[in-house]
Amino acid sequence: MTSASRRIAGDRLLQTMSILVLTLSLVALTALLYDVWSDGWRRLDWQFLTSMPSGRAHLAGIYPALLGSLYVLLVTAGLALPLGIGAAVYLEEYGGGGRLARLIEINIANLAGVPSIIYGLLGLGIFVRVFGWGPSVLSGGATLGLLALPVVILSTREALRTVPMSAREGSYALGATKWQTIWHQVLPGALPGILTGLILAMSRAIGETAPLITIGALAYIDFTPSGVMSPFTVLPIQIYNWISKPQAAFAENAAAGIIVLLVLLLSMNAVAIVLRDRFQKARA
């Protein structure tokens, strides 16, 4: 075999292997989705979405968990968005380059990789016990907010960096202060990127179970959260609760719950993609 034909053969081999690996993961994903769908689609209806959980599987619904997830997510976003943007603006626009800023940066990158259960323990220690918030929506949202914070900070910094120097210079040259430049030019330019990062962080938060179990979110509640201090449950915990029951009918409920969670997740990601797309078009 000549060297050229050997190289072409190697090329083919690698191409075939990549296609194989891709197919494998797609097949696994499709099988998983199909399995969940075939188990759960019969339970998916308006009644399922708007009913309380129940000891009888065919009457049980996901309403409190769905609302609980949305409540917790609102608190999470309300915490992670201003803190995350604030921290990123400081690191990127003000504090950059200093030794302290570098130390903070390294720690934030590390925090993004900390297992979520650790955040749960932190939330339990601080929000539930020290602050006395109990196992409430506020505690849950704050815990997930901490979890989302590093991701929001990192993606916001990335977005701030994409705002061209010329936009900042144009603003400064008109006698704008640093803050005016950041507020009127830099942040609006970075906004789609910031929102994309926020939504991706939120989609990670919405699927989290461990930290919320740690802080004491309930597995079974038959009321909707009445406010931020109310006890709550979330979709993944409800799904976990159903799956751990022996009756087959509850497994169906769990599958239906997974579909609801997946739809929520995919719609959030879709919004992120649309935003990123608009962002790129605006920059082009």
Binding site: E169, A173, L174
Partner: peptide, 15 residues
């Protein structure tokens, strides 16, 4: 900078 205006090499209107 209010008293000393500037025009850049690459035009940079705000979006």
């Amino acid at each position: 900078r209010r008293r000393v205006g500037m025009v850049f090499q690459k035009s940079n209107p705000f979006p």
